[in-house]
């Protein structure tokens, strides 16, 4: 795939060239700064480039959606962030947004409209599922995950928060792998422990860390791959697997990484 165009289109540059784009890829803070999440961002961009999708990113003009501040109780900071972001997004005439972060997805989709930001939001799981459904994204006959046991961890902000349970599973189905469910899945899915601002502080005193509880459940399925669809879940589950000293046998991958790997991108 060396002939691939690896350049990432930036909204400001496209505008300067008089070009437009169909969909804005909202990278998110984790996707921009966290090493593990950056790999997800890069995988997703490779898929977008591979399929010649007309997209753009905001680059350095992107800013935190304000989600962690809002959920920690700092509504001022959240709305400051939201209104600044809305000015930027509306300035570029953005209509559709795709994001790899369920927290950004939820905030942009549900909490920006009443502040003046109205966009058609898609999480990358739904975006990938549509590409598969329309036949644009075709899987190889014998992919690298064929027959492997994969378990999918529902992100709270995709699942319960927005009712997206099937799209990520459909994306995984195309890998021709053996999809196994954890006991607590879908509407009953157990949180990884990072939501509501928990990502940015130590947990309260308890008998166990939430991510360890969840990782144990994932390990119990016998899966060799834990599939995530959220950068925070990714961090928590990766830490959980390390805590259980299983990092040599069990890998945590995002949906975009699994697709990109399977495609050899």
């Amino acid at each position: 795939m060396s002939e691939l165009n690896h350049k990432v289109p930036v909204a400001a540059e496209l505008l300067a060239q008089g070009k437009s784009f169909d969909v804005l890829f909202w990278v998110g803070c984790a996707g921009s700064f966290d090493d593990r999440a950056k790999s997800v961002t890069r995988s997703f961009v490779k898929i977008l480039n591979h399929l010649n999708i007309s997209y753009a990113v905001l680059g350095t003009e992107e800013s935190c959606t304000g989600d962690p501040a809002k959920r920690a109780g700092n509504e001022f900071l959240f709305q400051m962030q939201a209104m600044t972001n809305i000015q930027v997004l509306n300035g570029y005439g953005v209509k559709r947004i795709v994001t790899t972060c369920p927290h950004c997805f939820n905030t942009l989709k549900n909490e920006y409209p009443s502040l003046g930001g109205n966009y058609e939001l898609m999480h990358h799981s739904t975006f990938l599922q549509e590409l598969i459904d329309t036949g644009k994204l075709k899987m190889k006959e014998s992919g690298s995950f064929k027959g492997q046991k994969i378990t999918y961890h529902d992100s709270c902000y995709l699942g319960r928060a927005n009712g997206i349970y099937e799209a990520p599973r459909k994306v995984l189905e195309i890998l021709d792998s053996d999809l196994v469910e954890m006991k607590r899945c879908k509407t009953k899915g157990l949180c990884c422990g990072a939501g509501g601002g928990q990502m940015f502080k130590e947990p309260e005193k308890g008998t166990k860390d939430i991510n360890v509880e969840r990782t144990e459940e994932a390990i119990a399925t016998g899966a060799t791959v834990i599939a995530a669809a959220c950068p925070f879940c990714m961090t928590m589950l990766t830490d959980g697997v390390k805590n259980k000293e299983k990092e040599s046998t069990i890998k945590v991958y995002d949906l975009a990484e699994l697709i990109a790997k399977n495609e050899g991108l």
Partner: peptide, 23 residues
């Protein structure tokens, strides 16, 4: 985390100019 968002536009203490380095 609040002051990072305010000053660096991200919840971590990282420079906003590095935001696009992933590419």
């Amino acid at each position: 985390m609040f002051s990072n968002i305010e000053n660096n536009q991200a919840p971590w203490k990282l420079s906003p100019s590095d935001r696009f380095n992933w590419s």
